[in-house]
Design a protein around this nucleic acid. Structure first.
Length: 419
DNA sequence: TCTGGGGTCCTAGGACCC
DNA sequence: TCTGGGGTCCTAGGACCC
């Protein structure tokens, strides 16, 4: 296996810069929903010491003082820019796996006769020229090694955004320079456990004893070690697989105490989730509803609970999902708590044509037509143009987004104009 | 006052079966 | 003091990813 990993540099910040070039070279951060935490930082903001995941309210003064530019997340923009980047990549490599909104694996098998570094540099330059998004590319004989190569490609001025670690005499050196916690698949817990036992770098982990790894980190950890040794354990998934679950959840701007408010929120989530699976051609076998109080408020009574309701037959129609969600909510709602977050998950998703049937199922042609009309209207006039039942649209749980940029590429009114 | 949202996979333990 | 062996299925929770 020879695999390349293309990763967009500070993706959300770079998207903000494409249509506001005056932001280039300046420190900029992008916040999560509700303007909660920092989820992306430009190189300049990183250099000023703004940590990833920092709660905005704690660093706001500091960021104002340092003239850091703040943006609320604009997923319409990022999603569309991502699509552009992935489309370019799909034209330049024989097979690709879109791994996340800002990452893509390239299948480079059978291209050994080429100078892979030169090829990757061509890809990098083309993406930047055609989309305005800067990227780095790492190449390795497994996905885990490609990840490490990518990270070093970004860090090293000599590599300048492209590093090929497949068949490289520098492998040991590269692994030595990579902290164990920076290895793909090693999160905070395992990094802590490993360093406390003298495993500090990717090289230490690669050379660890199999039985020990298996015992401490299970088969998942062992796979990571094998990948570091150059034995592929994670295949390239060229065909996008269907989701197994779909989740719609939000934290509320201010906490809710009444069931009717949660009812409204859960209804909205249920409708949105049903739309999502219809778009994907899936049906759900169960709905899970969850609510919780604010875990950061240790001075308040805590409560969290969830309920799963089966759907018979499997469906993607809004009405049965909505009523299952409400039944679930009723069963877990308790008075006298301040609810901070709620959400729903659709479970046991399968392709519509593969759904299990019962003897008494009747196909509901009118319902299908209703759902299609419903989706068409919301598609054309915007989400929420038509909805189900009587939603009171309790203002309380709308997201706080005080610094959002225009939807440059997905809304006519926001089209950037030449001055 | 203010701390995101959406996923995957694996494992352990309980309920149940013969 | 004694109380099998071998399965499956489900769920909750923990680890990880972006």
């Amino acid at each position: 296996m020879i695999v390349g990993l293309v990763d967009c540099n500070n993706f959300y910040c770079s998207c903000e810069r494409v249509f506001q070039p005056e932001l280039r070279g300046k420190p900029i951060v992008v916040l999560s929903n509700n303007d909660g935490c920092v989820i992306a930082r430009s190189a300049e903001a990183k250099a000023l010491g703004i940590p990833m995941g920092a709660p905005y309210f704690k660093h706001r003064k500091d960021m104002e003082r340092q003239n850091i530019i703040v943006r609320s997340s604009n997923y319409a923009l990022y999603g569309d820019m991502s699509y552009r980047v992935m489309t370019v990549l799909a034209h330049l490599a024989p097979n690709v796996e879109v791994y996340s909104i800002d990452e893509c694996f390239l299948d480079l098998d059978g291209l050994n006769h080429m100078d892979l570094t030169a090829y990757a540099r061509h890809i990098k330059e083309t993406v930047e020229k055609w989309t305005g998004i800067p990227v780095a590319i790492g190449i390795g004989s497994t996905k885990t090694l490609a990840k490490i190569a990518n990270r070093l490609a970004k860090k090293s001025t000599k590599a300048n955004g492209v590093l090929d670690l497949s068949n490289s005499p520098w492998m040991d050196h590269a692994l030595e320079k990579t902290e164990v916690g920076d290895v793909w698949g090693i999160g905070r817990r395992w990094a802590k456990m490993l360093t406390s036992r003298g495993v500090y770098t990717a090289k230490d982990l690669r050379d660890a004893e199999d039985g020990w790894v298996r015992q401490k980190m299970g088969v998942v950890g062992l796979r990571t070690v094998m990948e570091l040794r150059g034995t592929p354990c994670v295949e390239l998934e060229v065909a996008a697989s269907d989701k197994q679950t779909v989740c719609v959840s939000r934290s509320f701007g201010s906490p809710m105490t009444e069931q009717i408010s949660l009812h409204d929120a859960i209804s909205t989530f249920a409708m949105r989730s049903a739309e999502k699976i219809r778009k994907a051609g899936l049906v759900a076998g169960a709905v899970n509803v969850f609510v919780r109080t604010d875990p950061f408020r240790s001075d308040q009574e805590q409560y969290s609970n969830s309920a799963t309701i089966g759907l018979t037959p499997f469906t993607n129609h809004t009405q049965p999902i909505l009523s299952a969600a409400q039944r679930g909510l009723s069963s877990i709602f308790r008075e006298n708590y301040r609810y901070k977050k709620a959400g729903i998950l659709l479970l046991d998703l399968v392709r519509q044509e593969d759904a299990p049937r019962t003897l008494f199922d009747q196909s509901c042609e009118t319902d299908n037509k209703l759902m299609s009309a419903f989706d068409a209207i919301n598609n054309r006039f915007g989400t929420g143009s038509v909805s189900y039942g009587q939603l009171r649209k309790a203002r309380t749980w709308y997201m706080t987004q005080n610094h959002v940029s225009p939807h440059y590429t997905t809304r006519w009114d926001d089209l950037p104009l030449l001055k």
